[in-house]
């Protein structure tokens, strides 16, 4: 599903190139659950952003479902990730001014889904995550765990093939974290959603089929 070839990214700082990622080669198969680990600043989030097409690599090739992403124009790329990719963030990143219901609905608006269909999809999702009673609340009226549930529901509403999660449990207590990870596992196993998660926790990483370690922008094969 995902093929990364020699992906390299740098920033220029005082005339020197500082590499965030260097020569990353990585294949991820459809239906896989991959955990990315590594110390702070090792390039985990950068890698995730590149996979999620929020960021460009400076060098290298990136094929997603057979399409050469590095050759696509901004618009075409947006089309690809709109259809296939969902994001979950450590800080949830819900829109404060929208209710739970509206937050979940938003991606569908950007895909021009019909109103009746939207209602059905959002209702399903609320049901699935047991948050029907919370649908008219605003994010600041929810606990962190509940907010993250909304975040996941929102990421899944457009039925993505790939779910990218950047330390999804980082702001949660361990019990909430376990719940989230259980949901991820279930998603992966029952719905076949491909998941790539960045995490600091060995325990959470173990939910994945495969773990890669990053160190100073490279995949550390010795870990």
């Amino acid at each position: 599903m995902i093929e990364l070839k020699n992906i390299t990214k740098w920033v220029t700082n005082g005339g020197n190139r500082v590499f965030l990622l260097k020569d990353i080669n990585l294949d991820i198969n459809e239906g896989e659950f991959l955990s990315v680990m590594g110390p702070s600043g090792s390039g985990k989030s950068t890698l995730l952003n590149i996979i999620g097409m929020l960021d460009d690599a400076d060098e290298g090739k990136y094929r997603f479902l057979g399409q050469p992403i590095h050759e696509l124009k901004e618009k075409q790329r947006a089309q690809v990730y709109k259809q296939h990719i969902g994001f979950v963030f450590q800080a949830y990143h819900l829109i404060d001014e929208l209710t739970v219901y509206e937050n979940i609905e938003t991606p569908l608006l950007y895909q021009n889904t019909k109103s009746s269909e939207r209602k059905a999809l959002v209702a399903d999702m609320l049901d699935r995550f047991n948050i029907v009673g919370k649908k008219d609340l605003f994010p600041n009226q929810l606990s962190g765990g509940q907010q993250q549930l909304v975040g996941i529901a929102r990421a899944l509403i457009a039925k993505p093939k790939l779910l990218l999660a950047d330390e999804p449990t980082g702001n949660l207590n361990s019990k909430q974290g376990e719940e989230i990870m259980a949901i991820f596992k279930k998603l992966n196993e029952e719905d076949g959603v491909t998941i790539v998660q960045v995490t600091h926790s060995e325990k959470n990483a173990a939910y994945g089929h495969r773990v890669i370690n990053l160190l100073d922008g490279r995949i550390n094969h010795h870990a």
């Binding site: 999620g52 929020l54 618009k75 947006a78 990730y81 709109k82 994001f87 990143h93 819900l94 829109i95 404060d96 001014e97 938003t106 991606p107 950007y110 895909q111 929102r154 457009a158």
Partner: peptide
């Protein structure tokens, strides 16, 4: 800015 960022990751184009 945060809202713009979120909306963009949710698939909003600049035009929208």
């Amino acid at each position: 800015a945060k809202e713009v960022g979120i909306r963009k990751t949710l698939g909003s184009g600049r035009k929208q």
